[in-house]
Amino acid sequence: MAEPCLSRACVTLGTSHFKEANERVRAALAEADVVELRDVCAQRYLGCAMPVGKRLEIHGVPGNDMASYLDGGAIEVFGNAQDQIGNTMNGGSIVIHGRCGDAAGYAMRGGRIFVRDGCGWRVGIHMKQYEGRRPAIVVGGDAGSFLGEYLAGGVIVLMGRPGQYLATGMHGGVIYLREPLAADEVPEGLVLEPVDADDRALLADLLGEYNAHFASDLGAPVEATGEGYYRLRPASSRPYASLYAS
């Protein structure tokens, strides 16, 4: 069966105020399935709570809190993005053809974020998962400090090097690292170990999708088998129980 023809619209934002910009974007999304945004200049809140079946294609640099509460829609940024993308997102996808700033995926509850290059501080802070919802963030470069801070669920894949204070307070979920940590770099209460067959299957899925988005940008796909990665996970279901009164 042939896919339905999607309706499209184009909006040029320029230096318009973020309130006016978002009003124009929402009006365009009400009429079209795909909205291309041109000349984006740091307007905040673009694509917030966008539902399934809607798509934004952003050319320029979106401002903070892009895709907050994203509810199943798809956003692709052809350039860099600023802080707090995907804040508390429920589902959908975010694709960044560049790098992103701090706190991407803050309290993320579902969906996937793919960042071609590196990211800032506190990415994936307090991510969580419930039943069938398992959010994922894939970062192709280095990460700033506090990656996966207070991680409660979900998946983070990092192809570059982490910054300081990796996974501080992590008590759920998993972080996959392409580069191993020294023994004294593994945070207390966590375990670093080679991946197993289930991990490799998950990594193959996520890295395959990363390649689908970025292989043409990079000039070649990244290795997508998951071989050679390491899994960082909590040592128990209550790794910090000793810090609290029984």
Results as ranks from 00 to 15, higher is better:
216 S>Q: 15
229 Y>I: 05
111 G>S: 05
28 A>F: 11
133 R>F: 07
41 C>K: 05
231 R>D: 06
196 D>T: 11
201 A>M: 10
101 G>C: 03
25 V>M: 09
219 G>C: 06
116 R>V: 01
100 C>D: 00
86 G>W: 00
69 Y>A: 12
112 R>N: 08
128 K>I: 01
50 M>K: 10
222 V>W: 04
111 G>F: 05
30 A>D: 15
168 T>D: 14
225 T>E: 04
170 M>F: 08
1 M>N: 05
202 L>F: 11
127 M>C: 09
41 C>Q: 12
229 Y>D: 03
208 G>E: 04
108 M>S: 01
130 Y>V: 10
219 G>Q: 14
236 S>I: 03
17 H>I: 05
116 R>D: 13
170 M>I: 03
46 L>K: 09
123 V>E: 09
12 T>D: 03
160 G>F: 11
139 V>R: 04
112 R>D: 15
158 L>D: 08
31 E>L: 12
245 A>H: 14
149 E>L: 04
172 G>P: 04
207 L>F: 11
229 Y>V: 06
111 G>A: 03
212 A>L: 10
186 V>H: 02
64 N>I: 12
142 D>E: 10
73 G>S: 14
10 C>T: 15
31 E>C: 02
160 G>A: 07
170 M>Q: 09
66 M>W: 00
155 V>T: 15
239 P>Q: 08
239 P>C: 01
131 E>G: 06
124 G>V: 01
93 S>W: 05
103 A>M: 13
162 P>T: 10
36 E>W: 00
67 A>C: 07
80 N>V: 12
197 A>L: 07
90 N>W: 11
141 G>D: 03
137 I>S: 04
96 I>M: 08
105 G>M: 02
143 A>P: 15
26 R>L: 11
204 A>R: 15
121 W>C: 07
210 Y>L: 06
180 P>T: 13
189 G>V: 04
26 R>Q: 13
234 P>G: 05
222 V>E: 04
223 E>C: 03
47 G>I: 08
93 S>Q: 08
191 V>K: 12
17 H>F: 02
70 L>A: 02
97 H>A: 07
195 V>E: 04
205 D>F: 01
127 M>R: 14
45 Y>D: 15
7 S>V: 02
166 L>K: 11
95 V>H: 06
54 K>A: 10
227 E>A: 14
67 A>P: 08
126 H>F: 05
53 G>D: 12
41 C>A: 11
232 L>S: 07
225 T>A: 09
174 V>A: 13
38 R>P: 06
107 A>E: 14
